[in-house]
């Protein structure tokens, strides 16, 4: 379970998070929506411990993330995958090398096992055929799948998805959405999904929260929000959204 309680954060002279409280229950996809620049990525960075709150608490399975030392953070990050916008792959490594990076860098697995694991996740995301290509020569959708494979390679219990469909066409987006659902249902991953897209939210989400001025303005199940009268819920999930 991921729990943020009353999180405050100032960045670049602006109050980005202002009392954010949010709970992601085990085995669910929590979708976080909100206008650009409202601190959705900042929220994810708090969960994985790249940023520390000025005030408030961030807990994963009851453990306080900002209080963790290096070793504890490493352990946390092994249990938590992070899918960046556009994949954030290393350009001079092949698809397979990118996916192998988290395993190789902490090299506890034998080489053969690493390779097996890499091909297993590449097959899961449908990228096994392109294992030896380099990121600049593959499409945006393929880069994102590779990023997802890299996030999954350490067998995490949690995955944070930062705009997993930004800049993708509806067909490729839908494939990514199906993958996110598959990762929840087959691998049993708990997800925190940041997105603007109604299709993504309603297809992948179990609960949805909309961030405004540093805290959740509305929160509820997909069905609840789809019929809500709240102006933000209507803007993000209403009939003419997307």
């Amino acid at each position: 379970m991921i729990e943020l309680r009353d999180v405050h954060k100032r960045l670049g002279g602006r109050q980005i998070l202002d009392g954010l409280t949010l709970t992601v229950p085990e085995g669910m996809n929590f979708v976080l929506m909100g206008p650009s620049g409202t601190g959705k990525s900042v929220t994810l960075r708090h969960v994985i411990g790249i940023l520390k709150p000025d005030q408030g608490s961030v807990r994963v399975d009851g453990q306080e993330v900002p209080a963790m030392d290096r070793a504890q953070l490493m352990a946390l990050r092994k249990r938590m995958g992070y899918l960046f916008q556009n994949g954030a792959l290393i350009n001079w490594l092949t698809v397979a090398e990118n996916v192998a990076l988290p395993l190789r860098e902490h090299g506890r697995l034998p080489r053969a096992e690493t390779d097996d694991r890499v091909h297993e996740v590449l097959r899961l995301v449908g990228m096994d055929h392109a294992a030896h290509q380099y990121p600049p020569s593959i499409s945006g959708g393929m880069r994102l799948r590779t990023g997802l494979a890299r996030a999954l390679v350490t067998k995490p219990e949690y995955v944070l998805y930062d705009e997993p469909n930004a800049g993708l066409d509806p067909i490729i987006s839908q494939q990514i959405h199906e993958l996110i659902v598959e990762v929840r249902d087959k691998v049993g991953v708990t997800g925190l999904v940041v997105t603007h897209s109604r299709a993504c939210a309603t297809f992948c989400g179990d609960r949805i929260g909309i961030l405004e001025q540093g805290r959740l303005a509305v929160e509820g199940t997909v069905a609840e929000l789809a019929h809500s009268d709240h102006p933000l819920a209507r803007a993000f999930l209403g009939g003419d959204a997307d």
């Binding site: 790249i50 990050r77 960046f84 954030a88 290393i90 990076l101 860098e105 902490h106």
Partner: peptide, 8 residues
């Protein structure tokens, strides 16, 4: 940031 979240 991606490197950091992989503890690299």
């Amino acid at each position: 940031s991606a490197l950091e979240v992989m503890s690299v």
